[in-house]
Write a protein that binds this DNA or RNA. Structure first.
Lengths: 340, 340
DNA sequence: AGATATTGAGTTACCCGTAACGTCCGCCTA
DNA sequence: TAGGCGGACGTTACGGGTAACTCAATATCT
């Protein structure tokens, strides 16, 4: 457990050359003979030398190949897929993700930002568009690219890759009202991703109001947007007395919960209640029919975020804001009103 | 984008003290007066000084606070929860996860290990017990604690935190045969987590054979263990001609796929086919009844892995192998044979 | 042959903190 | 008043690499 790390100096001495020459060989910088290379490489092999990249960053006053990635949580596949997209892309370009789980708390994000910046990262990828004032100061002074993901943000700190959540909600509202529904429900949580989910809800509400319909909302307090909240959220919404023809859920997990509630109560979908989700999550594949939802490629979102960051590091100019887009997927869980 | 980083020397100069004094103040090491502290802190504030931890590691010939964490994938919640457990615990002790997605490939793990070691991590957490020979050499020579997770490994490289997958499969086999089933099926994938899932299957098979029963296996080739493979894997197993009374699945996602297949074919569960899964995954909460499964706390597994690593860094002696344990959860999807 | 490139390798300084040690000065004690 | 002592701060020397420069030996050209 001793620090028996082999240093470049030791390799050089063993090979009978100077540190600098060994350094040149290892970086394949040129300016050395074949025989020197062989001598050095032989010692590298023999001693099991592993370079110390901290020293390299330090020496060159360079950036590291770390990228700080803040993610709210990994409790469902959503941000797992985003992170997978990020890390796969970064890995392909020899960069590493340094993770920060913020648990949806801005002050946790702040202290994580401070720590991660002290390691001289090459860049940062942050989920969400809200940050504490101190975070903003640090981020702006850091001198490294910052990509804000998930929410589309027309005036990002630096760069932004995301989805227009408001529009996706609006489109769903227009779709459902287009099918004839006017008495709509919305079931979500008051939990998190708050900005994005709230934007969807607002977009949805706007579209429905534009079509002279109305939306009854039910937010499950302090809960993660999973199956169970979807189940009992539906129960509570329907037993609130409001007349509801169709429900838009915060995400597909909740929508599946709603579908199961309807099945348990012998409510036909979409005959009695039409159901729409969001995200096109893997869960939907358990059902033998398509659920109306909004498709978003979480993996791609992560990949593009990493690409944009790498491009910025590379000096390649790119647009500041990247809209990943979404696609409304009509399914069997919503139908024409009056035709079952 | 220039390197306008403020150094300790600049802070010190601005405050009219030496670097060393400023350093002492910042580390609250003592040996300075109140007025000196105030002068220094005022400049820290004014200049927005952020320490450079690279230099700190470097100066003290210390370890960093990075912990390399290799994870096969984040496509489902399983490893997402494990990673969440790890990162939350590490974060609470001021350490950071440097992620490595291996995509179940040992050579990817190898090159990631090489890279991450070059950053002088405090330790490593690796999923799985198989590593390439070169990986083993590097890990043993690294001089940092290494925790292998997921599979229980009686002779780990250094430390191990996991579940006894064989035993959990064996227990399920004994449970099902105890209920009277003798014609068993197993549905899994040939994909990954291979070691662990295979161990479960082997344990299951052993228990069934010990009870004079038999197991018909069906492995879906090259597929992730999700709902859909569970669905069609069940179809293929049942249409293979083998008589099957009960099926044990690689995990709950696949088991839910199997349940949906049975529902689609009007097969009663457990009347016609009993079903058992593994993992006690969130998906199960969509069903209004309990599914027979094996409960494993993925979050806890991650937390314990991080704790063990931190304890090792701390010099606190711990046992080398930690068994997280599992708990067979009887549910409504398996019943007494002959009684529906 | 002498002048000028080219190649191969060594020297020095530096990156930014910190450990270890050194210095100065005021205060207390005998 | 000399001597001892400790608090407050400064100086120096790293640590593992790299940029920039220097220098010697060989190759090339006129």
């Amino acid at each position: 457990m001793k620090n028996n790390k082999v240093s470049l100096a030791e390799v050089a001495k063993a090979a009978g050359v100077s540190k600098m020459t060994a350094s040149r060989v290892l970086r394949d910088e040129g300016g050395f003979s074949e025989s020197t290379r062989d001598k050095v490489m032989a010692q590298v092999e023999r001693l099991g030398y592993l370079p110390n990249r901290l020293a390299t960053v330090f020496a060159g006053d360079k950036k590291s190949t770390f990228v700080g990635v803040s993610i709210p949580d990994l409790g469902n596949e959503v941000f797992g897929m985003v992170l997978e997209g990020i890390d796969r892309k970064l890995g392909a370009f020899s960069h590493q993700s340094v993770l920060g789980l913020t648990q949806h708390a801005l002050d946790q994000e702040e202290s994580w930002i401070e720590t991660v910046l002290s390691w001289q990262p090459a860049g940062l990828i942050l989920t969400g568009r809200s940050h504490t004032p101190k975070s903003l100061v640090m981020l702006k002074g850091a001198g490294v690219p910052v990509v804000e993901i998930w929410d589309l943000n027309s005036s990002p700190i630096d760069l932004c890759v995301g989805v227009n959540h408001f529009d996706s909600g609006y489109d769903m509202g227009r779709y459902l009202t287009g099918l004839g529904y006017r008495k709509l429900g919305y079931v979500g949580t008051s939990h998190d991703t708050a900005n994005a989910a709230t934007a969807r809800m607002n977009g949805f509400t706007k579209a429905v109001q534009d079509a002279d319909g109305q939306v009854t909302r039910h937010l499950c307090l302090h809960d993660v947007p999973g199956f169970y909240p979807g189940y009992y959220g539906t129960e509570q919404l329907l037993s609130s007395g409001a007349e509801i023809e169709a429900i838009f859920y915060q995400n597909d997990n909740m929508a599946v919960g709603g579908i199961h509630y309807c099945a348990a109560r012998n409510l036909s979908v979409p005959g009695d209640i039409a159901i729409a989700g969001w995200g096109d999550l893997p869960i939907l594949s358990i059902l033998p029919y398509r659920v109306t939802t909004v498709h978003v490629s979480h993996l791609k979102l992560g990949q593009v975020a990493a690409e944009v960051l790498l491009a910025s590091l590379d000096g390649t100019p790119t647009q500041d804001v990247h809209d990943i887009g979404f696609r409304l997927v009509p399914g069997a869980t919503t139908g024409q009103v009056g035709r079952i």
